Structure formats: C-alpha cells, structure tokens
Amino acid sequence: MPGDFSSGARLEIRVTPADVGKRVSVRQLAELADGHPTFTDTVGVLASWDAGVVCVTRRTGETVRIPEKLLVAGKVVPAAPVRRGIAVPAVTAEELAAIASRSWPATETSPLGGWTLRAAGGFTRRANSVLVGGAPDRPVDEALAYVRRWYGERGLTPYLQVPDTSPFVPALDERGWIREADTLMRTAPLAPLTSLPGGDDVTLSRTPDAAWTAAYHRTGELAGAALKVLSGGPSVWFASAPGVIGRVAVDGAWALFGAVEVAPEMRRRGLARSVMGALARRAYAEGAVAAHLQVEADNVAARALYDRLGFLDHSGYHYRRPAA
C-alpha cells in the first residue's frame, strides 16, 4: 500500500518542495496519548509546500494542510492506476458553469444575489461578464441597471453569461438585450483521454512562458490581464510542443481543458490530441475523473475534434449585452 509506513521501518521524509505536482504519501503526527504518538497518513498530489505548511490534494479534491513540523515521513509514490468506466459526475448547467468559472477566474468579482459580476481587464467575455445563476437580490430592471453601472465604471461592456434554460431569457428578450456567442459546455470521462497517443515531446509547466503566450491568439494587447486569468484556478498546467499549446485546470473531480491551439501550418498531424492526452494524464494524476470544456456552437472544426475524443453536449449558454 502506498500509504503504509510500517511500524518497524525507519520513518524518513523523502519529499521536498521540489516534488510539488507529484503524487506522494505522507505521515503526520496526530496526537500524543499517554506518551504514545498516533499518526495520520495522506496520499495525494503535493499541491504546495510554502511558509511551513505542506498541502496535499486527495483524489476526492479535498486539500489536507499539514504543518511542516508535524511531518514525520513522506515519499513520492507511483501515479494511481487509470480506472475505466467511471461516469461523469451529475451536475446542473449552473453548477458546471460555476466550476468552469473557478478554473477561468476573473480578477475581480462582486455578488448580486445569485448573480456574480466578474471583471478581468477585458480579457475574454467569460471573465468579464455576469455569471447568471439564481435570482438577483433585487428586481430584474434594477439588477440590469446595476450591471450597466458596474461595468461602465470599469470601461467594459456589460455582458451577461446566461444558461440557455435560464428563466431570465424571456425578460432579457423583452428588454432588447442582444444574444450572441452561443456556446456549448461539453463533458467526457477523463480516463479514456489519458490513453491518447503521443505526448513525448510535450512540456508541462505551472506558468506559461513567452512562447506559449505568443502562440495564444487571444492575448494580444491584454497580456497582463491574460496572464492573471490563465494562471488562476485551483491547479493549472500549461502544455507546449512544437506548433501546439494547451491548458488544463484541475478542480477536484473536474478538469477544464482550454487554449488548445495548433499553428496553421502544423494542423492535421494529431498535435491537439497529443497535448490533450498529456494534460489528461496530468489531471488524472491529481485526482480528476471528468473532463469539460466550452466551445462556441458554430466552431465546426473544434466540435468535430471533441466528438472524436468522446465529448458530449452537457448544456449551453450564451451572452447578452444591451442594445445601446
């Protein structure tokens, strides 16, 4: 057993901050009872080791915080075996949108009842729109007026991200808020993606380097704001190989894939699949079991790729903005 530290074996701490991102088994001192120590074992991904605190994320998504002074043993252990046949967890459209929002986080948020106002210097509509979940804490007209003011103060267009099944769709139609950028949320079991071929030349890192950022077409003049959003999220990894990049953010059982881009001259060589596979293996090692992503409904090429990878439509959303 990876977490078994035999009572007859010498307890050693064979993990260091350099092992962040690896799967580890650690033992901590729990308490002393009548002069006898009791211990607790934790197996998971070493998420961080900073300021005297060791954080290990279990497969369930729970993060265990261990004071360094209580650590009595630790070692790097092999990645967990891939388990086939695990179903995608059942979540509502609003729940999946909230998971995705945490993995593509705005730099500024403000609650409005069941709505969440998000801003990130204008980098992507997703991070600069109202996440419409439940009901706002005031009548709809007052809520929309507040949204206009809040985004106007930041020099941003007041966008709403609205589930297609939201009860507020008729009200927005009546008030002339323009619908655009219909988007699909798609999900798939993660385990099959870990078997995608290739990936030997894919480099994974915690931060995007200059080459990765230059290859990402959405960055443009918003490089500063983009870096904050791209690097935000519970556990983010960036992938790069000649002619292709990608990103995954792991949040418990869920892994959000995005920013998969292939240089025009390198397309139709399986590079996107190679990067997806490398990111999937990294996400699976951290305990994720389900993949999700967002793709605009009219992006036929991307939808065809994700069809071949086993993604199915979960739900849809679109954006709204005032006519004037």
Rank of each mutant, 00 (worst) to 15 (best):
F39A: 04
T60N: 10
R267N: 04
V140A: 14
Y306K: 10
A90N: 10
G220W: 09
G232E: 10
V24I: 14
Y159D: 09
E221W: 00
Y146H: 14
Y317V: 02
S25E: 03
S48L: 14
R125W: 00
S25V: 01
S129G: 10
P37W: 06
V248S: 08
W254Q: 11
R125F: 11
A255F: 08
V132G: 01
A280I: 06
W237F: 06
Y319C: 12
G35C: 12
Y159M: 03
A171F: 06
T16R: 15
V250I: 15
V169Q: 02
A290V: 07
A73K: 12
I99L: 14
A171M: 06
R148V: 05
D141H: 05
A288I: 01
R186I: 13
G198R: 03
V202S: 02
D19K: 12
K75N: 01
S240D: 02
L70P: 00
E62S: 13
L144G: 07
A120F: 08
A135W: 07
P2M: 11
A278P: 13
R149H: 09
A135H: 08
L32K: 03
R218T: 02
L256P: 00
F238H: 12
V202N: 06
L71Y: 08
V260Y: 02
G121C: 01
R148D: 07
P37Q: 08
T194R: 10
L184N: 01
S240L: 01
A225M: 02
P170I: 08
A80Y: 00
A285K: 08
Y319V: 11
V45W: 04
R10C: 11
T63R: 14
